[in-house]
Design a protein around this nucleic acid. Structure first.
Length: 510
RNA sequence: GCACCGUUCGUCUAGCCAGGUCAGGACGCCAGGUUUUCAUCCUGGUAACACGGGUUCAAAUCCCGUACGGUGUACCA
């Protein structure tokens, strides 16, 4: 039941790092395309030269690369509908805009930005809102109020002008949206949007509609912030006599607390990234953290993002990209904005971390160990990781959970000492040390058996001994099965740690 | 201001279109169990249909209104 020629696009502006809301929009496009057996296109909408930020496009591409979102056509790998950067398509827009003027659907306007802003100010002081519409355009400087000859003169003299859409005075525009259903707007509340700017570039509205048509985009899946301009876009398609694509306007990602759209500030304030990758602003040198650098797995990041505004309709929560493709449908996208929950993001990462193989995790952990000046064999690191990964959300947590496998404790958790280091502990640990030094087969099972039978024979309390023992070996009351730890660090190290602990903690007075 | 969109546990959400289960799941939190410790894990608990009308034998579900929120209202996208 898939449409024959599904073609979707993600069309960001290179004005800075890609926000996770944008990543989610791209993800839904990608899932939809894959599910329908269609094509996914990456187009760069750089019609505003003043907002261009160097490195932004590269960032966007790298981010998708990291996430595993792939494009069939676009600025990365080209394609038959190129170029895919709007600045490189500049020449084709003007003719289309002129065509609209010829058919009376658009007109030239000579009002300068300064004139317009002063009118706006004046209206505001009278508590009115200025909109450039069917009423106002009669009083302004445009090809509707100036005769043809003078318009030609003005243009001939190089007077800057823009091209505006002549919004009908009173017409119902009926639109259909895949997630919102039928939407109706009367054109009387709409304004004469600029289609073509005085700098020779089209605005988003024109460029976007034209390119979507020229690139044969079948479904426009984009953020809800575009819904208010949908009537204009639809009217443009109709004015050109083009088939409209199907539209789907996605709900926005909201900040975790309070109200409003998720922004970089929220991330900084609440301690989580708002961007997939770390970003350094080329001008201010200000940096923003990224999911990748914060230790998230791309699979977890994608999984988390996919479930923010979409759900499969059953109770599954863990999805690989392939699973998502299989389960995705645009009809199941929600209609209301989703507050981002950093806590659940961490949970997702944990889920992926524990299912990763120990060798793979060891490889990821290795650089951290090296940074601490530790050169442990891969085999040992794998074993250690296998023992502690349940306790970690991120690869970086692994060190806190396993440092004692690699370095002997230099100090001891004072609260634990207070709680578990009793008057008898000192003597008991000396005894234990003797028992341990007598063991030849220093395997976990054998040590356990030997120590336990010693405890039984002496009628010592199990908890009493084991907690004190753990304190000496680990430095705190945490970590995996203690006999596994001592077996791994070996007999010599174990005995040394007991020596050091005994010396450092000392004997507790009764 | 105006326009459009939205509103189910603290959060993500199922259920709504085709009215009729104690409104289900997950995260978080709390309690208990398991464990030599921490974590994992297991069990249980916590907590929601924004409000007001209407239609109906019956409304989270359909209709109207209100409130609240979001977005848009740029020669930005």
């Amino acid at each position: 039941m898939s449409d024959k020629n599904v073609r979707v696009r993600f069309a960001p502006s290179p004005t800075g790092p890609l926000h996770i809301g944008g990543v989610r929009t791209a993800l839904y496009n990608y899932l939809f395309a894959r599910k329908q057996g269609g094509k996914m296109i990456l187009r760069i909408e750089d019609t505003d030269q003043t907002r261009f930020v160097p490195g932004a496009e590269e960032y966007i591409i790298e981010a998708f690369n990291w996430c595993g979102i792939e494009f069939d056509e676009g600025v990365i790998n080209g394609g038959p509908y190129g170029p895919y950067r709007q600045s490189e398509r500049k020449d084709i827009y003007r003719d289309y805009a002129e065509e609209l003027i010829a058919s009376g659907i658009a007109y030239y306007a000579f009002d300068t930005p300064e004139e317009l802003s002063s009118i706006r100010q004046q209206y505001e002081s009278e508590k009115k809102t200025f909109i450039y519409n069917y009423e106002e355009r009669q009083k302004l400087r445009n090809s509707l109020t100036i005769d043809e000859k003078n318009v030609a003169d003005l243009i001939g003299k190089g007077t800057p002008y823009v091209i505006r859409f002549k919004m009908p005075e009173d017409e119902m525009v009926v639109m259909d949206d895949l997630v919102r259903g039928r939407v109706e707007v009367n054109t009387k509340v709409l304004d004469d949007k600029i289609l073509f700017k005085s700098d020779g570039m089209p605005t988003y509205h024109l460029a976007n509609v034209m390119d979507d048509h020229l690139m044969e985009i079948s479904h426009v899946i984009r953020g809800e912030e575009w819904l208010p301009s949908l009537p204009l876009h639809v009217m443009l398609y109709r004015a050109y006599g083009w088939d409209e694509p199907q539209f789907a306007h996605l709900p926005l990602l909201l900040k975790p607390e309070g109200n409003g759209k998720l922004s970089k500030r929220d991330g900084d304030r609440l301690g989580f990234p708002v961007f997939p990758l770390k970003w350094t602003d080329p001008k201010t040198k200000e940096t923003s953290r990224g999911y990748r650098e914060d230790g998230y797995f791309p699979e977890a990041f994608i999984n988390m993002l996919a479930l923010l505004g979409w759900n499969p309709g059953d109770e599954r929560e863990l999805f690989s990209m392939d699973d998502l493709v299989e389960a995705f449908s645009i009809e199941r996208v929600g209609r209301s904005g989703s507050k981002f929950d950093p806590e659940k993001a961490r949970w997702f990462n944990h889920q992926y971390l524990v299912t990763k193989g120990n060798e793979e995790l060891a490889d990821l952990f290795e650089p951290i160990l090296t940074g601490k000046g530790i050169a442990a064999g891969k085999e040992k690191v794998s074993i250690v990781v296998g023992m502690v990964k349940e306790r970690a959300n991120f690869v970086t947590d692994l060190w806190d959970q396993s440092s004692f496998f690699f370095v002997a404790p230099a100090e001891f958790d004072q609260k634990a000492v207070k709680k578990r280091w009793k008057a008898d502990s000192y003597e008991q640990m000396i005894e234990l040390q003797k028992v341990l030094s007598g063991i030849d087969d220093f395997s976990s099972d054998n040590i356990e058996q030997t120590v336990k039978s010693w405890i039984e024979k002496k009628e010592y309390g199990m908890g009493m001994i084991m907690n004190a023992f753990r304190l000496l070996i680990v430095g705190a009351l945490k970590g995996p099965h203690l006999f596994d730890i001592v077996a791994l660090i070996g007999k010599e190290d174990t005995l040394q740690r007991i020596d050091f602990g005994l010396k450092t903690i000392g004997k507790k007075e009764a």
